[in-house]
Computed example of a mutant assay.
Amino acid sequence: MTTSIKNPVVKLFFYTILIIWSVSVLYPLLWTLLDSLKDNKQFFLNMPWALPEMPLFWSNFSYVWSKYNFSTYFMNSIIVTVGSTGLGLLFSATTAYVLARYKFRGSNAIFLLYISSMMVPFVLALIPLFFLMNTMGLINTKIGLILVYTSSVLAFGIFVLVGFFRSLPKELEEAAIMDGASYYGTFFRVMLPLSQPGLITIAIINVLNIWNEYIVGTILVNDPEQYTLPVEIGIMQAEMQYRTEWGPLFAALLITIVPVLVMYIFFQRRIASGITAGAVK
């Protein structure tokens, strides 16, 4: 059900706010794109806010891709993001299904424990987490990053999926069991496909968060071959005080931004509808 604003003054006010907000969001992206097409001379001439001169330096993208070994960092980010998101979905879905469909002593307490963990900043666990990962020999490994990121997204996934599983009719499980399906078959063939809106929502949000994560990647990884894109961007920015390659730096930022920006544009409706559907159900 949608409502429309009939008062022209109120409508103008809201449209003005939306336009200002859109400009404030889009301008930094446009500025990054324009500065990625400049050479160092244009930055030295105090032209960081001006339009780039011709010819445009599209070579900044190929330069940063090869010179700074961005292909390796890009692949590292893909592996870590896909692995963490996949494991996070699997563990969140199985845990949420048990908590939502099976009542046992302590089930509500476990659910509240997961939810309460969302209120604790993950940064507070970095020091003991570092010593734990070091003891397990998982420092400077993609597996270590995947396990840490997976654990960090479990609470949110469980919170969303419990609402979905609780809304599904009990008769679906009973019918599947009567047809000879096992408990595993009932979950993977019946219940999990029905929770697809929630799974897609969680996957998109997790991908956005993990792809852009910087602090954990900096602490748990100091091997350049294992860096993810945000970590390498931070190192490039720190090196700018010793070398002046601002065009390639903005090109690197754009390479990092574009994949998640495109994904968000295509799936933004699913994010909103998935969270709303789980809450309403």
Rank of each mutant, 00 (worst) to 15 (best):
Thr2Phe: 12
Ile5Gln: 09
Lys6Ile: 01
Pro8Trp: 04
Leu26Lys: 03
Trp31Asn: 02
Trp31Arg: 00
Asp39Lys: 06
Asn40Tyr: 10
Lys41His: 10
Asn46Gly: 03
Ala50Met: 11
Glu53Cys: 03
Glu53Leu: 08
Met54Arg: 07
Phe57Trp: 13
Ser59Met: 13
Trp65Leu: 15
Trp65Glu: 05
Ser66Cys: 13
Tyr68Pro: 14
Asn69His: 15
Tyr73Val: 09
Ser77Asp: 12
Ile78Gly: 01
Ile79Asn: 06
Thr81His: 07
Val82His: 10
Val82Tyr: 10
Thr85His: 08
Gly86Cys: 14
Gly86Ile: 13
Gly88Gln: 01
Leu89Trp: 06
Ser92Pro: 07
Ala96Phe: 06
Leu99Cys: 04
Tyr102Thr: 08
Asn108Thr: 14
Phe111Val: 12
Leu112Lys: 11
Ile115Ala: 06
Phe122Trp: 04
Ile127Arg: 05
Pro128Ser: 05
Leu129Ile: 05
Leu129Tyr: 02
Leu129Lys: 07
Phe130Ser: 02
Thr135Gln: 10
Gly144Ala: 05
Val153Tyr: 00
Val153Ser: 02
Phe156Pro: 02
Gly157Trp: 01
Leu161His: 11
Val162Asp: 00
Gly163Ile: 06
Pro169Glu: 13
Leu172Tyr: 14
Ala175Lys: 10
Met178Ser: 07
Gly180Ser: 00
Gly180Pro: 03
Ala181Val: 01
Thr186Glu: 01
Phe188Met: 09
Leu194Cys: 05
Leu199Asp: 11
Ala203Ser: 15
Ile204His: 09
Trp211His: 01
Asn212Cys: 02
Asn212Glu: 11
Leu220Asn: 03
Glu232Ser: 10
Glu232Asn: 09
Ala238Met: 15
Glu239Met: 12
Met240Tyr: 07
Arg243Ala: 14
Pro248Cys: 07
Leu249Asn: 00
Ile255Tyr: 05
Phe267Asp: 03
Phe267Thr: 03
Arg270Asn: 11
Ser273Asp: 14
Thr276Ile: 15
Gly278Pro: 06
Ala279Pro: 05
